[in-house]
């Protein structure tokens, strides 16, 4: 998403990522990040938590309007109050690597086999 954000900003839109992994998002060189300590799959907030979701989106929009320095990360003050998230089923790449452990090195190195 970091690379996508860069393209959009370069195309003339003001952009911000609401990122649960700000270190990774920032590594792409993006203009604005609102960092949020929420679990994957619930970036905005818990299902049905309208007030919480609204507060997070409002804070993100404020950061979009207020950040003046390219590359700024604004750490949002929200903390996760919901239950510990449940993991989904293991994705295909994890199953593949458990069958062929030597491929882990390729994934770590970003050495992605051509299709």
């Amino acid at each position: 998403m970091g690379l996508v954000q860069r393209e959009m900003e370069a195309a003339g839109f003001s952009t911000i990522s609401l990122s649960p992994m700000p270190e990774w998002t920032a590594a792409a060189g993006v203009p604005r990040i609102a960092a949020i300590e929420h679990p994957f799959g619930q970036t905005i907030g818990r299902p049905g938590d309208v007030a919480g979701q609204t507060a997070v989106l409002r804070a993100t929009l404020a950061a979009l309007a207020e950040i003046e320095e390219p590359g700024t990360i604004r750490h949002l003050p929200f903390r996760w109050t919901g239950p510990e998230p449940e993991e989904g089923p293991a994705p295909p790449i994890v199953e593949l690597i458990s069958r062929r452990p030597w491929l882990y090195r390729k994934l770590l190195a970003g050495d992605i086999p051509a299709a």
Partner: peptide, 10 residues
């Protein structure tokens, strides 16, 4: 005619 974009990675 969008001005601002909020990206939501998961």
């Amino acid at each position: 005619e969008v001005d601002g974009v909020v990206l939501v990675p998961v």
